[in-house]
Computed example of a mutant assay.
Amino acid sequence: MKAIGFKESLPITETKSFIEFETEKPSPTGFDILVKVQANSVNPVDFKVRQSVAKDKVLATPKIIGWDAVGVVEAIGDKASKFKIGETVFYAGDINRSGSNSTYQLVDERIVGFKPKNLSIAEAAAIPLTGLTAYESIFDRIKIDPVKDKGKTILILAGAGGVGSIATQLAKKVANLTVITTASREDSIQWCKGMGADFVINHHNDIVEELKKIGHPEVNYILDYVNLDAYWETIQKIIKPQGHIVSITGSGTPLNLSIMKNKSVTFSWELMYTRSMYTTDDIERQHDILNHLSELLDKGIIKSTLTTTLKGFTVENLKKAHELQESGRSIGKTVIEF
């Protein structure tokens, strides 16, 4: 089968930053299904892994990355029962396994959902990783109750990003929250509003003052999708007592959690890969989440965040997608159709 990978962590402009090669088509066992990939999308994790995994060394065999895909089930493992051959699925996969930058991929069926029927292949491929991350942030980490918590305020840092775009929609249209996002450029501000944000504040200004201007000096919840270290001191000023903070970005230094003590604030990490990395008891939750997202998309309650489609599974297109992600100025999602 055809695959595109890398042996060295090189700048994306380098000729060998990605290489095309042939490798054996795998066969599924256990809970795995074999998917013939039709499209995938690129996320920040893709270029971060590409830049770090083979730094200062050359891998013996090319590493295949890619953590979003839509495809058709071609074969099923002996323990798999959720899908039939010929059905179209979408998923974000497992960071510890071979990725979707290949014409065929093995994936555990428990982290796979049915593709939304009313979306194109490209529109669906834009969803899984960001959709799972946003959904888990709101409903698994904070555990929002759309009835009990209706109208409470949530601040989404980096609202125009891939995760922020889905989180804004879920927070507004499913969780019934008052949604505040950050953005600065006119195109990203309008994008956030189009996703359903009630307010968009400028992250280049003082966040404390920006929130005061819109009449919400403190918020119930904060989702950090950009840079926890940069916002940590500000967060403790604007989170309400007994509020909840979720971050996906990590921290370069130990966090001073004691500054949240008097407010009894809850802090949670969110990593979409946790369930698949550790085969947690609730690993099947991602199957259920993806199916719920599929239902929400088919009903038009939320919409795809696809903005750019590249035709053809080629090294050139993969490089273009990575360059766009690395620029830090991309809005929405970039998908490659095979």
Rank of each mutant, 00 (worst) to 15 (best):
I95G: 11
I95D: 01
N96Y: 01
R97E: 11
S98K: 07
S98N: 08
G99W: 00
G99H: 00
G99C: 00
G99S: 00
S100N: 05
S102H: 01
T103M: 12
T103V: 09
Q105W: 07
L106H: 09
E109G: 03
E109T: 00
R110L: 04
R110F: 00
I111N: 02
I111G: 00
G113N: 09
G113D: 06
K115C: 03
K115E: 04
K115I: 03
K117Y: 00
L119E: 07
L119N: 06
L119C: 08
L119D: 02
S120M: 01
A122N: 11
A122K: 07
A124N: 11
A125D: 14
A126K: 04
I127G: 03
I127V: 15
I127T: 12
P128L: 07
P128F: 08
L129P: 06
T130H: 06
G131Y: 05
L132K: 04
L132R: 05
T133P: 04
T133D: 09
A134W: 05
A134M: 05
E136W: 06
E136S: 11
S137Y: 10
S137H: 08
I138K: 02
I138A: 03
I138N: 04
D140P: 00
R141K: 15
R141Y: 05
I142Y: 01
I142G: 05
K143S: 10
K143N: 13
I144P: 02
I144T: 11
D145F: 10
V147D: 15
D149M: 11
K150S: 14
G151A: 13
K152M: 10
L155C: 14
L155G: 09
I156S: 12
L157G: 01
L157A: 02
A158C: 10
A158E: 12
A158Y: 15
G159N: 05
A160N: 08
A160G: 14
G162D: 09
V163E: 04
I166K: 09
T168V: 13
A171M: 11
K172G: 10
K173P: 03
A175C: 09
N176M: 13
N176T: 07
N176E: 14
L177N: 05
T178Q: 10
T178A: 03
T178G: 01
